[in-house]
Each structure stands twice: as structure tokens, then as C-alpha cells.
């Protein structure tokens, strides 16, 4: 599959995400924030970083980048979209995912190898994992506290839209220890930790993140 990775001004992890896509067995296609063109890709990743300097709110300005009109349109038609960290924030600002991400409750930037549980393996990004599988990947954010109003939270939990949950500790004050969610359709996934940094033995904390990039292949042959 051709997987587009969008580069915004201030994106940091776009090249790592492209590399993870290739290691996962797919073709990585660089997409530019200023181009309203998805270049015929089958899926899109919005990478981590500090797009537009996190000005106004994280993801608030990126949401209106020309490429995002196309991403929103394609997501509505069922294209798999994964937002990692800043990408998750952009997906929430775009209203492709419910809720919002606010400053960590302890007010410090957090960077740690974080244990997660995959709660939903029925998305095109998590099908390579077993339901309930525990994985350890790096988490690095300043504004990763997931918040939503009570009815939204209830719906996320009730409909199985929580994709991943923090284990051992809540690193950023996220409600219900939520690390990642999906939309009702299950094609759009937002995740605060970084699977793209855990795809090679040489670097990172292990290979636990690889499943996010091999799932697409499994989904297409399912």
C-alpha cells in the first residue's frame, strides 16, 4: 500500500514515520501541508512534532492547511488515517476525532518508555496486535492529556473506540488513561505515544510499535 506522511512546518517525526512505513512493508509517500493533493495514497499518517510552532493551540492552524481538506474528505470516505502525537492533536482539532488534548496535568514535558494495552485491534492500524496485548513504546509530549465531556467519554468506552490505554501510570492526566482513540467508523486513529520510534532493534525501545505499520498489509489481505 502507498502510505502518505504529511510534513507540516514544525513536523519532527515525519522521516521516522516514513521509515517505519517502509519497514512495515508499505511504500512511503511524502505529502506537503501546502499541497491539496494526496498523490493517490491508500492511507495517511499525520506525524508528531510541533506543527506551526503549536501556536494558538496544538494542531489548530495545521487543521486548515490545504492538505487537510483532502485528508478530511478521504477520511470521510473511509481511508485509513493515523495521527501520532501532534497528528492526534490535529485530528481532534479537525473534528475527525472527538475530544481534545490539553497540557499534561503535572505541567512537565514527559519522555518515557510507556506500557500500553491495545484495547481495540479492529482498526486498520492495530489489526496486527492481539486484543489486550501489552506493548511498550516511547511517549513524549507536553500536551497529551486527553479530555472529553462525560457523554463523549461514555460513548468512546461503550462503542469500543478506545484503541490504547496507559498501563502502570497515567503519564499526562488523560481521562480514563486513554492513549489512543478511533472514530465511529474505525478508520481514523489518534495515538499520543510514538510507535514509529519502536520498529528497529538498533534504535528505540524494541519492536512493539511495528504492528501499527504492518497492520495495513494484514488489513488489505484480510
Amino acid at each position: 500500500m502507498k502510505v502518505g506522511v504529511v510534513t507540516f512546518p514544525g513536523s519532527l517525526d515525519d522521516v521516522d514515520a516514513q521509515r517505519a512505513v517502509r519497514i512495515g512493508g508499505n511504500e512511503a509517500v511524502a505529502l506537503w501541508h501546502g499541497d491539496a493533493d494526496l498523490k493517490g495514497v491508500d492511507a495517511v499518517i499525520l506525524p508528531g512534532g510541533f506543527s506551526y510552532g503549536d501556536y494558538l493551540r496544538c494542531g489548530a492552524i495545521s487543521r486548515f492547511a490545504p492538505v487537510m481538506d483532502k485528508v478530511v474528505e478521504a477520511a470521510g470516505a473511509g481511508m485509513p488515517v493515523l495521527g501520532i502525537c501532534n497528528g492526534f492533536q490535529i485530528l481532534c482539532e479537525s473534528h475527525l476525532l472527538p475530544g481534545a488534548l490539553i497540557r499534561n496535568d503535572h505541567r512537565k514535558f514527559v519522555c518515557r518508555d510507556q506500557l500500553l494495552r491495545i484495547e481495540n485491534n479492529r482498526t486498520p492500524w492495530t489489526s496486527a496486535y492481539d486484543a489486550g496485548q501489552e506493548i511498550r513504546i516511547v511517549l513524549k509530549n507536553g500536551e497529551g492529556g486527553f479530555v472529553a465531556d462525560a457523554p463523549t467519554l461514555e460513548r468512546l468506552e461503550g462503542e469500543g473506540q478506545v484503541v490504547a490505554r496507559y498501563l502502570e501510570m497515567n503519564p499526562n492526566g488523560s481521562m480514563n488513561e486513554i492513549a489512543g482513540i478511533t472514530n465511529e467508523r474505525g478508520n481514523v486513529v489518534g495515538l499520543m505515544p510514538h510507535p514509529e520510534h519502536a520498529v528497529e532493534e538498533l534504535t528505540g525501545s524494541g519492536l512493539d510499535g511495528l504492528g501499527f505499520f504492518t497492520s495495513l498489509v494484514e488489513a488489505s489481505f484480510a
Binding site: 490539553i102 499534561n104 505541567r107 479530555v147 465531556d149
Partner: peptide, 14 residues
């Protein structure tokens, strides 16, 4: 302004 029910870590720091 952050909604009353939303945690405001910056306000807490001040």
C-alpha cells in the same frame, strides 16, 4: 477561557 470543568495546569502554576 478553558471551560470550568477542564483542568487548567497553567492557571494552577500561577
Amino acid at each position: 477561557m478553558p471551560k470550568p470543568e477542564i483542568l487548567d495546569p497553567q492557571g494552577k502554576a500561577v
